[in-house]
Write a protein that binds this DNA or RNA. Structure first.
Lengths: 162, 162
DNA sequence: GACTATTCGTTGAGGTTTCAACTATTGCCA
DNA sequence: TGGCAATAGTTGAAACCTCAACGAATAGTC
């Protein structure tokens, strides 16, 4: 009793997959080439730069960036080795680690930001009307709400194997 | 002279990033758990299943799936080892390789499809109105057109390092 | 036919992500 | 306080992707 996709949905789904793939790839390359940063790491630096004292618990940073703990931990090691962040003991919880953006890290972010923003604008916002921009936001928010109300752990279709 | 994002654009951009991330992750996990297939490989099997004789040149398969040659080649090795596809010599071009979906591969796809479709429907289409579905398609198509008209190789912002 | 450029697909190295396992610490509750 | 679950973060192995380089075949040109 599978509810298959209609033709209209099928077309929308494929267009969505294609568009998100192309956009992500283009932004990835732009960032990588112009500043040597993967988009994932750029995100981390952005979050830190917006935090008070440019500092966050690994925990909060992971949640803010939608990263797994493990992924963030590996990424942090790399960013630390590059001198862009540093790790500090957390004074209130001895399990905790604080990640702080260094001056070098901030400089790297400042150097990367204009090109990245320009790319986002050129590839995403320029071709959209103002109405489409707010439609995109509404659609995105609806999906966010839906996915969060349906945690991944529970599984979506436990019968698929049967 | 960077054209920074407006607040409205900023919000749309972050919502977009968040939504695409959550959705991709949820679908990835669902597929992985229910059928052991990464979404990337699922895509490959789908393309093959739709082709005449369930068979495509590596070339065409790469283009259809938006994969790099290298990525597809690695993926094909893996899928071949799993017994889901097989490689055949191309009769008309001795450089070529044909990838053909095996019966086992088709069976794996048939087993995975209902759960995956159900997840796509549940997480993406159920929370959207019909209007939003066509908006999503229009937005996606606009972005596709834009990105393709602006090839990655040329670079988006050669001045970002300055 | 030889020369060159292009295309096809693969390979290996290196970087990133996931997964499962692990230690250390905190929170809860009797 | 002692016991136990939950949380914070790290680690190593395996999977996956990217990049650059490569060998092989084809296409275009003279």
């Amino acid at each position: 009793m599978t509810r298959w996709l209609t033709d209209e949905e099928q077309r929308a789904w494929r267009a969505y997959l294609h568009a998100t793939h192309l956009l992500a790839e283009a932004l990835e390359r732009q960032l990588q080439r112009d500043s040597g940063l993967p988009h994932a790491y750029y995100e981390i630096l952005v979050r830190l730069s917006e935090a008070p004292d440019r500092m966050l618990r690994m925990n909060e940073l992971a949640d803010a960036s939608q990263y797994s703990r493990s992924r963030l931990s590996h990424a942090a090691s790399r960013l630390e080795a590059a001198g862009w962040i540093e790790r500090l003991e957390c004074p209130t919880d001895r399990r905790g680690q604080l990640a702080r953006l260094t001056d070098d890290g901030f400089a790297a972010l400042e150097a990367a930001a204009p090109g990245h923003v320009e790319a986002v604008r050129t590839l995403l916002f320029d071709p959209l009307s103002p109405e489409q921009v707010s439609q995109l936001r509404a659609i995105s928010e609806a999906v966010i709400a839906r996915v969060q109300q349906w945690p991944v752990e529970r599984g979506v279709s436990p019968t698929a194997a049967g």
